[in-house]
Computed example of a mutant assay.
Amino acid sequence: MLPIRDRNPSGQVPYVTWGLIAVNIVVFMAYYPLGTDTSVLELYRHWAMIPARLSAGEGLATPLVAMFVHGGWFHLGLNMLFLRIFGDNLEAEFGPVRFLAFYLLCGLIAFALQYIAAPLSLVPVAGASGAVAGVMGGYLLMFPRARVDVVAYYVIGLRTFAVPAWLLLGLWFALQVWGGLATPADGGVAFWAHIGGFVAGVGLSARTWRLRGGRMFWSRFHGLPPHPQAPIAVPVVRRRGAILPPPQAHGLFRREGDPR
């Protein structure tokens, strides 16, 4: 199954999300299409995070740079697809500056856990997967009832259907934990980076989640009207340009400018 979109419009233009996608694509295009396998490996050797180098006190800046380095079109495409699907809603919740900081911090925490799992590994680790996993973790906490359209392959062809975000993202996280426990930490897939980023995303979103009402935040919001731009959407968006009930109707929400 491959997610292709969510039914949860943010009501805003996600400038940071689109900017991150653009930067990742530009960086990738700068070295991959015109290069050779040897040049890509050389780039990984210098700019990917290599745990053994960090243990030796070298390449301390590589975890930040490695977030924007990908090994191929499939690697880049999947990361950017997931960022596009889940990033806009978190950006609407956090605001552009906080969302950018959230994304980068999740990525750094992801690399840190991968390093802890195999501090002497010589296998390069790179890509936006850890940071994007953080976005997915935040989305799971903030929008578990949102519907996500996925494409599945059947013998007779392709079919699109919607699943709740908690099911899709929960299953994805469970697969990462299984992969991390079942395979060596210095294998070809950075499962522990995915786990670290996802958990970091949940943790860094917790304060905003609590301010929005905690567990009540996961309910159906007691009869709120559907989003005017998407009648099939789960009504979970609350910032500028989105659903905001009158203050007296629900004490968890305030309009901008209302007294605190």
Rank of each mutant, 00 (worst) to 15 (best):
G107I: 01
F143H: 08
V16W: 02
H75S: 11
G180F: 08
G157K: 07
P164I: 06
F217P: 00
G197K: 05
P96V: 02
P51A: 12
G197C: 09
V26H: 07
P164M: 00
W18P: 03
L78W: 09
N89W: 08
W218E: 12
F191M: 13
P164C: 09
W209R: 00
R145V: 02
M136D: 08
G95Q: 06
S55H: 01
P144G: 11
G223L: 08
H250E: 15
V236N: 08
F102L: 08
E58A: 13
L181N: 07
G188P: 08
A193H: 02
G87L: 05
L83E: 09
L120C: 12
V163S: 11
W209S: 02
M216D: 15
T38S: 11
F143S: 01
H222R: 01
G127V: 03
N79S: 14
M1T: 13
Q12R: 12
F198V: 06
V237C: 11
L244E: 07
I21C: 08
L211Q: 15
R260A: 15
W18V: 07
F217Q: 10
L83T: 07
G11P: 09
H250M: 15
L64C: 03
F86V: 09
F143T: 00
D149R: 05
F253M: 12
A126E: 04
V27D: 10
P225I: 15
S129A: 08
L167M: 14
E93W: 14
G127P: 04
V177S: 00
S10D: 10
D186Q: 03
A162V: 03
A128Q: 01
Y32V: 02
I195S: 11
M216K: 13
A230Y: 11
P226I: 02
V123C: 09
M80H: 01
R212I: 06
D258W: 14
G19Y: 13
L2F: 13
L204S: 04
R45W: 14
L81T: 03
V163E: 11
G107E: 04
G87M: 02
F161R: 09
T36M: 08
G11Y: 06
L113D: 06
G213E: 12
W192Q: 05
L54W: 00
F198T: 08
A162R: 03
M1N: 04
V16N: 05
